[in-house]
Each structure stands twice: as C-alpha cells, then as structure tokens.
Write a protein that binds this DNA or RNA. Sequence first.
DNA 1: TTAACATTTGCACAAATGTTCAAATGTTAT
DNA 2: ATAACATTTGAACATTTGTGCAAATGTTAA
Lengths: 127, 127
Amino acid sequence: MLLYFSMSKIKSAPVCKIEIVDEGKVKKARKLISNSDEIIDIAEIFKLLGDPNRLKIVLALLHRELCVCDLAAVIDSTVSAVSHQLRLLRNARLVKYRKDGKMVYYSIDDEHIAQIINITKVHVKES
Amino acid sequence: MLLYFSMSKIKSAPVCKIEIVDEGKVKKARKLISNSDEIIDIAEIFKLLGDPNRLKIVLALLHRELCVCDLAAVIDSTVSAVSHQLRLLRNARLVKYRKDGKMVYYSIDDEHIAQIINITKVHVKES
DNA sequence: TTAACATTTGCACAAATGTTCAAATGTTAT
DNA sequence: ATAACATTTGAACATTTGTGCAAATGTTAA
C-alpha cells in the first residue's frame, strides 16, 4: 500500500499543536486562497503599480494620453526607461497605445485603475 | 549671472518637437504627480500586495486572524518565510498582531484592503 | 536617397527582493 | 532548573528587477 502526502514544501506544512480547532481554521483559509492562478494575476497588477516610476506613468496617463517622449519628461526619466516600463504595462493590458506617424500615444486601458489608486490614496492619508 | 536648470537626470527632460502644445501637456501632468512622497507611499502598499505569497497571507487574514504557524500551513510555506513577510506587512501597518502566550495572532489592520483587492479581482476577471 | 526624430529592443550590471538555514528570544509546562 | 514550542532575527544566497547604453526599427521630411 502506498501513502501519498501532498506537500509542496518537504519541510511539511506545520499546524500549531495548541488549540484543537486549528486544523479547521487552516482548511477554511486554504480554500479561500485555493485559486492560485487568480491570485498570481492579481499580484501581478499590484506589482506593476508598486514601482514609483510606473505608478507615476499611470497617474499621468489617467489624466490624458501622452507620447513616450513627453512621459519621460513628466516623470523625469529617460525615453528608454519609460519605454521599458510601458512594455510591462502593455503586456498586463493596463495601458493601450495609438500610433500617429512616428509618435506613439499611450493611455489607460482599464476603468478600475483610478478607483484602485484612489482607495489606496485614502489609506495612505489616514495612516 | 548664473543659470539654474532643474534636471535631476543630466540627460535632460526631453519634450517632443512635434506639436507645439506639448509643453503645456507636460507641465500639467507634472503637477499631477508632483506629490512624490505620497506616490512613494502608495507604491509601497501596492508593492507589498504585489507578491503572491504576501497577497495570500493578506487574503487569509481578511477572513479571520491566524497565528504564524497556521499561516505558514495555509500558504504552504515555512514559518520563517511567513514571519519575514509579516514584518513587512506590519511595518506598513497593513496587519496588526495580538499576543496570547507564545502564540502571535495576526489580522488585517486596514479597512480598505478588501476593497482594493476586490476591485483588482474584477479587473483580472474581465481581461 | 539621406537626415532627423520617436520609439523599441537586447545586453550588462547594480540594487532590491524572497527564501533558507541556524541561532536567538520568549513563553509555557514539567 | 530543563524541555518543548512559537516566533523572530540575521546572514547568505540565488533570483528578480529597473536602468543605462548602444544599436535597431520605423516614420517623416528634405
């Protein structure tokens, strides 16, 4: 007979020995975070907004579309650095772009972003 | 006579030569992101939520308080790793803790976090 | 065609980050 | 006192990340 243990970390998943109800707690909490793929996707959005320069880009774009060159001027960085960051934001579909001749105009591609940032702003101001 | 140029990057802050209105655009956008300290604080929150394991910790704690050991079991990590992450979340006042004997129970210390995460979840599901 | 401009891209590199391990701290029970 | 347990902490390590540079791409104008 074979016994299988599903533990991704060999070290085992410890459950405290105190309090007999613990195991129920843990199982319930595990279910809440069972959708690992979704969590990774959500974390990806937060990670992108978690860099000050990228956040500045997003904040600037929330007001109106801007070309790469102007964005660099706005956040006081280089065109190259901004372009690198825009690629990440593009891949996550947080921004979209529109080409006009040699210019590329970027804008926000998500209706919720302003909301997310504003709520977080409230948090920061309160603490 | 001395001339001062306020450019933190020596490379200059380029403004595209096309479109004469650009300078106005840039100045307006600059004002929107002028509160650099606040932006850094907001980015800090996002950065913390931007790690899948830390986000799992927060999601688990949103449901109910948990001790470090159980948290480790829930997110399938080690006690040490969880403790390190909790320190970061503590420093940013995203979580608080309560001591009971040798146990330390952590819980969410911010009313907005659930809101922020839920809105982001909507974004992810829509794309 | 060439020149000028806007943007993108690949590489290199330093800085930041997350995890592991081992040791330290603190608490409870024996 | 010692032993057992829960948590924290510091150091080491590999990985990730953001930026600068230079070259490449693409577009417009001369």
